[in-house]
């Protein structure tokens, strides 16, 4: 059983409040491009929403393949997070992730993936439709 976020995507209305609070708490700005949750309303079948985020999968190839060993274990949670100081922004994790769960920040200097806000994910708190759970 993975320890990451879970989503009932069929309930999602695409409002992106999760992405807003995520960027606010992590970079102090409202900026979905720097969020760890990517919300995409799909085109050309409008009305469908795709959520991309790190599920904290058991196989975690990102951890195995990271040449800088910048994806580290949060021992308390048993989950992995990106150490932005050590990440070189090489993009290997993005390449190997089977779930489109991580990506590079807009300046391409480090990888972004869900760190569960250290234990109390803000996105779960703000989601008005109860889409997200742990």
């Amino acid at each position: 059983m993975s320890k990451g976020l879970k989503a009932e995507v069929e309930k999602c209305t695409g409002c992106q409040l999760c992405a807003l609070v995520c960027s606010a708490s992590h970079v102090g700005k409202f900026n979905p491009s720097e969020s760890m949750m990517n919300v995409m309303d799909l085109y050309p079948e409008p009305g469908e929403v795709k959520l991309s985020y790190c599920t904290q999968c058991d196989e975690h190839p990102c951890v195995e393949e990271c040449p800088a060993e910048a994806i580290k274990l949060n021992e308390a949670l048993g989950t992995y997070y990106v150490d932005r100081e050590e990440c070189t922004g090489c993009g290997m994790c993005v390449e190997v992730c089977p779930y489109e769960g991580c990506w590079l920040d807009p300046s391409e200097s480090y990888a972004i993936k869900c760190d569960l806000c250290g234990g109390t994910p803000q996105c779960i708190e703000v989601c008005p439709k109860g889409v997200l759970k742990r």
Partner: peptide, 30 residues
């Protein structure tokens, strides 16, 4: 079909609608 929100909206008043059969089958709108 389903409810749809604008950016940053906790209400989601919009409804995706799609015609299931008849002369206008496949037509859809919010």
């Amino acid at each position: 079909v389903r409810k749809k929100a604008c950016f940053g909206c906790g209400i989601a008043c919009g409804s995706w609608a799609k015609v299931k059969d008849g002369a206008f089958k496949g037509a859809s709108t919010e």
